[in-house]
Design a protein around this nucleic acid. Structure first.
Lengths: 98, 98
DNA sequence: GACTCTATTTATAATTA
DNA sequence: TTAATTATAAATAGAGT
């Protein structure tokens, strides 16, 4: 997928790495949403930044409920764990629409 | 990707849904691994079964460390949270090879 | 740096074994 | 069944804005 086959190793150039991170993170979350819809399962995706201070996820309420002992049905929210800012994209049977 | 464009809604036939779940879960974890390698980030993927008793993930040690207060570098392991059996595929900078 | 385009690679739905 | 094949849809690398 792309003009050239890409070698599976760290992209050394910082700006290219950032562009690829944005593109592929978006693609990964899209695929997680599709899997959730087609197969009627909850899916969580978490991507940590290279500095470990931010990550994003598409995640089900069941997962949050189990691990964090809370229950969330909104589509997107922010919170913190151990001084890291967390951005969550929620996919549940309650809030699955695009 | 496939012989026909697939409509974004729950696959009603159980066997087809199961086949698609297996294929797409594998694809999702592959993409998570690639993102982890190319962009030098930790990535977690968790797929819950439709009965909520089993899920799988590719997940970084940092994530487990933050949420579960443990540190894991092995490639695959099982454990439980709240009576659910968890199968984890670990992707970290320490254990990232196929 | 952050969008848009498109040639090309990759993932996968339907099919076949 | 369950696994492999293949035609096609989808993702995306690099280029252009």
């Amino acid at each position: 997928m792309g003009r050239k086959k890409v070698e599976m190793k760290r992209i050394e150039e910082k700006s290219s790495r950032q562009v690829t991170l944005c593109k592929r993170r978006k693609g990964l979350i899209k695929k997680a949403k599709q899997l959730s819809i087609l197969c009627d399962v909850d899916v969580a995706v978490v991507v940590f930044s290279d500095r470990g201070t931010l990550y994003e996820s598409s995640t089900p309420s069941r997962f949050l409920h189990a691990l964090l002992n809370i229950y969330i049905v909104s589509v997107c929210l922010y919170f913190t764990i151990q001084n890291s800012i967390i951005k969550l994209f929620i996919i549940t049977s309650e809030s699955r629409e695009e």
